[in-house]
Design a protein around this nucleic acid. Sequence first.
DNA 1: TTATTTTGATAGTATTACTATTAATTTAGA
DNA 2: TCTAAATTAATAGTAATACTATCAAAATAA
Lengths: 225, 225
Amino acid sequence: MNPQLRIDLNDKLYLRDPQATDLGRRLIGQGVGLIDEIGFEQFTFKKLAQRMGSTEASLYRYFENKHRLLVYLVSWYWAWLGFQIRFHTHNVPDPRDRLRLTLGILTRAHRDDPTTADLDEAALYRIVVREASKSYLTRDVDGDNREGLFREHKRLVAGIAAVASEINPAYPYPHALISTALEAARKQLFFAQHLPSLTDAGTAGSVEQSIYAFLEGLVFGALGA
Amino acid sequence: MNPQLRIDLNDKLYLRDPQATDLGRRLIGQGVGLIDEIGFEQFTFKKLAQRMGSTEASLYRYFENKHRLLVYLVSWYWAWLGFQIRFHTHNVPDPRDRLRLTLGILTRAHRDDPTTADLDEAALYRIVVREASKSYLTRDVDGDNREGLFREHKRLVAGIAAVASEINPAYPYPHALISTALEAARKQLFFAQHLPSLTDAGTAGSVEQSIYAFLEGLVFGALGA
DNA sequence: TTATTTTGATAGTATTACTATTAATTTAGA
DNA sequence: TCTAAATTAATAGTAATACTATCAAAATAA
């Protein structure tokens, strides 16, 4: 589907571009695997270096700290998701159809897509589900934001919100609606897997089908469409 | 309003009940202050002990680790919120009115209420906004869940979801809807303060008013009511 | 008043989150 | 292809974190 998908991220995210070198690409590829396995709090550059057969000091030349790596991975995911959405909706004239397709993509994009290069999207999605909100729920949000670290997230929300506004130009909360839907898509999947009494997804049919139907009702209900 | 509000939490949350001793109560009171000031990741029992004029070892006798303290504080908040909701809605017959009142409470309960005993609810709410999801987004969710650490959160969601079901018994996703709304109330406030382009709250009128209006449209829209 | 519990004081450990230095190796340019 | 520059590996080191252990002092309960 995307043989040479090139994703350019804010260069403030890293000290040295990890896509530019072999070590950098292995850092990302294996980093995703390790964070997925042991979780972000247990993850350290030392452990990753051991697994990669490299050294802690070498990895610290790519990212200031592990938090920047997380923000990088999450940004990469938002950018990739934005690409998927544009790719699948670019010839669809009706904004309702575009919004429906978009909701479908963000509930199951990670499944359909063949693995891009050295990145395991399914593992990355598990990381996004579990860790994405930690990228901004920190003491330094404001500083990080000033550096533009959340640009991809904002871009994605703005893009989908524009479709919502096309459907109902009078609706006053398109950004809130889309950021909520984006968050809900991940949270409800997490709840279905770990805290099922906080959701209803999976009680009838597949979890992803339920989440899609829930989101569709939520978004179109709010838009009064 | 609640002179002797007694909140009983799952005793798995702590090693020794912090409400039972003077040191324990100071731990909670000052712990809230310190987490609010420096954030959960920078927070340590050593720093808290210094501020309290106690010792690290003494505090570790109350909580296994700082994560348990966070879960305790968040659980306390959910329990307190549930109490506020029951208190303000207990004589309201129409479920729509009850749901509207509930949404109002969860967007601004922390403002109206006078400080309970030694707990600063405004600070606690800031902690809930910023840190609550970290209480379950961990590697040990399943274990923690088996111990019942998320009971208060579930109880709150179930209670409000029941009202939603009363309004529209055919609606298939009441738990998803309410857990989403609960999360959105906090997230949108955080976005308004730190990442305003992810929300619309505050562009017209007060942030809390906007969040309330957004949630009302979202929830009643989904319920088709 | 004695026994029990709780706290404080102190010390110690393994791990984390880095930084610094230097030597080996790779890569890029002339 | 040789040389210079950049990159990585290897090693070492530091301050802070997340605890645990021990023991004496103080408070409390029987």
